[in-house]
Structures are given as structure tokens and as C-alpha cells.
Amino acid sequence: MFDRLFGRKSANDAPGLPAIRNVTIGRTVVLDPLAWRRFGGALLFPFDSDTLQIVAQGVVALDEGGFIHRFYTDDDVMFQAVSNDRAGQDITDVTIFAPWQSRYPGRASERPAWRERLTARSFTDDGLPEYRRAWFGDEAERQEPVSFWEDVHDDRDGIVDRRIFQTCMLYARTVEGDGRELLLAIDQENEAGEVSFEIMLGMALELGEFRA
């Protein structure tokens, strides 16, 4: 999903890379598989393992002051924690996402059309049911998506290896057993100007449903 970009920040200028509840590059996250298996075949979430080997880590500083911490496996499964602080001491949300589909636009006209899809109150795609907008609620017919830069690290030296600009919207659908499946639709561009459209499926985790 991520390509190596040009340039690196000086290690002297980069803040230390935080470990979030002991999760960071080089460590293994052990998940409670009952978190998704209890829903039987109702989830389309394309993941069924109880371990994640973390090989890369991303940090997003949100405009409103919060932080998103992302931890990636070799096959781009993404373990994500949202916190009110960069150190990750005050976690408000934990999710796991797995790739569903990646597209690489061949024409410039494809990007505005994809961006417009991210403003809609619902989202669907080939092989997927309808998901309703989870961010901002689905009352408004149109809602602008969220945009941010993600600093991605391949090791713990504090140097940013690549930066990716993302515009995204989160959707969700209810599944049997009082569950909820998430869909993250993303427009992303690296510093070299390479663009891709990503669809990831996931679900929320409780703090007791993982350890590292």
C-alpha cells in the first residue's frame, strides 16, 4: 500500500516514536479471535488470525489536537489506536483494518469521481453491501471527508521514512449478533505524486482484546 518516498527527516529533529500499550515496530500483537469470530460468517472482514507482526508504524497529528497511531504488517493489515496525546496514554478508540481493494487511477478524471464518492451518506462497491457514514452521522446527504498527512516509519530511529497525504471517510454497517463492520474509503497520495484508492474493512476492538 505504501511506497518509499524521497527524503528523510533528521533524527535530531524527529520526536521519539511512541509505543502504544507496548505496540510498536518489531513486536507481535496477539488478538482475541473471538472479537470477530463471534459474528460467524456475517462479517466480510478479510482477516482471521490471532497475531500481527508489526513492520511499520504511522503517526497522524490531527488538527483538533488528537493523534492516530497506526501499526502495519507485511500484508498491510492495519492496527490503529486513536489517542488524545502523542504518547498514547489516553486512548479513545482501537480498530483493526484489512485491505479489501486497491485501485490505481489511469486517468485524471477518475480522482474527482472517487473523491465525490467519499462525500456520500452511504458507500458500496462490487461484492459489498451498503455501508452508512459513521463519521459525522448520515443525516446530511453530503459531508466533506477528513484529510491528513501520515508520517510512516520503518524502524524506531525516529526518522520519517515516507509521508502520505490521505483523504478518507469511515462507513459502517450493522451485522447480526449486535456487531458492526467498518469500511474505510481512502484517497491517498505519496510525496512522489503517486495516487491510489483504497477500501479497507475492519472492526472496533476493546482494550482487553489484544496484547503485545
Rank of each mutant, 00 (worst) to 15 (best):
T119F: 01
V160P: 10
D154N: 10
R163P: 05
Q89C: 04
Q188M: 08
G66H: 04
D157Q: 05
G41D: 15
D3L: 14
D74A: 14
R156T: 09
A120W: 14
M1D: 14
W100L: 00
E116D: 14
V59D: 12
E181A: 06
T167P: 02
W135E: 14
W36T: 11
E181I: 08
R173Y: 13
A42T: 13
E64A: 08
A98M: 06
A192K: 12
E176R: 07
A19R: 10
M78K: 12
M1P: 07
P112W: 08
L34K: 12
P99G: 01
E110G: 02
H153Q: 07
A19N: 08
F165M: 07
W135N: 15
P105D: 09
L52H: 09
F71W: 09
P46I: 06
G179I: 05
Q57C: 06
R107N: 11
P105G: 12
G193A: 12
E116K: 13
S196K: 14
V29F: 02
W135M: 15
G177Q: 04
E191M: 11
A19V: 11
T51D: 03
G66Y: 01
I25W: 12
F148Q: 00
Q101L: 11
A87Y: 03
S49V: 00
A120H: 13
W100C: 01
Q57D: 08
G58L: 07
D126A: 15
G177C: 03
A120M: 14
G58D: 08
R70A: 15
D154M: 09
